[in-house]
């Protein structure tokens, strides 16, 4: 199970990195989301995989002798997911604003037009 998850994590990292280096900012955000998920899955895997043993004491207070799942990685992942949710939501709002002001989601267009405008401005001043 661990090795399979390792392959999945590797795949997620690779896909995330690939999307990050694309020019489209929408794809960049998707890449960021994948990177975050890869990191979460990584925490989940290194926190030991245990099947069907939730980390809480049952109502009768009797603990089973078998090992239970470690709650800390789950808490970490939950926190990271929540934070990721907030950051990605902000990033989405940001790219919407960018698209509205620039009229394109291509980073190259954004950069070159900015430089073009700067040059234009300088020429006008001359």
């Amino acid at each position: 199970m661990e090795s399979m998850l390792a392959v999945v994590i590797g795949g997620l990292y690779a896909a995330g990195m690939y999307l990050m280096v694309r020019r489209s900012i929408v794809k960049m955000i998707f890449g960021l989301a994948l990177l975050g998920n890869a990191a979460n899955l990584l925490i989940f895997t290194v926190g030991r995989l245990t099947r069907g043993r939730p980390p809480h004491v049952p109502a009768d207070g009797v603990l089973s002798a078998l090992p239970v799942a470690d709650p800390v990685p789950q808490a970490l992942i939950l926190t990271a997911i929540v934070i990721g949710f907030g950051v990605q939501a902000f990033a989405l709002v940001l790219i919407k604003r960018v698209y509205q002001t620039v009229g394109s989601d291509d980073q190259d267009v954004m950069v070159t037009e900015n430089q073009g405008q700067e040059k234009l401005g300088q020429e006008e001043e001359r």
């Binding site: 290194v46 926190g47 940001l94």
Partner: peptide, 29 residues
């Protein structure tokens, strides 16, 4: 307009740093 361009670079690079940090913390745990 130029602020948007700067913000996108900042967001992308810092989120990569966060992902690395998270992975490092997970492995350390």
């Amino acid at each position: 307009r130029e602020q948007m361009e700067g913000a996108i670079k900042y967001v992308a690079l810092n989120l990569i740093a966060s992902a690395l940090l998270l992975a490092g913390i997970g492995l350390l745990y």
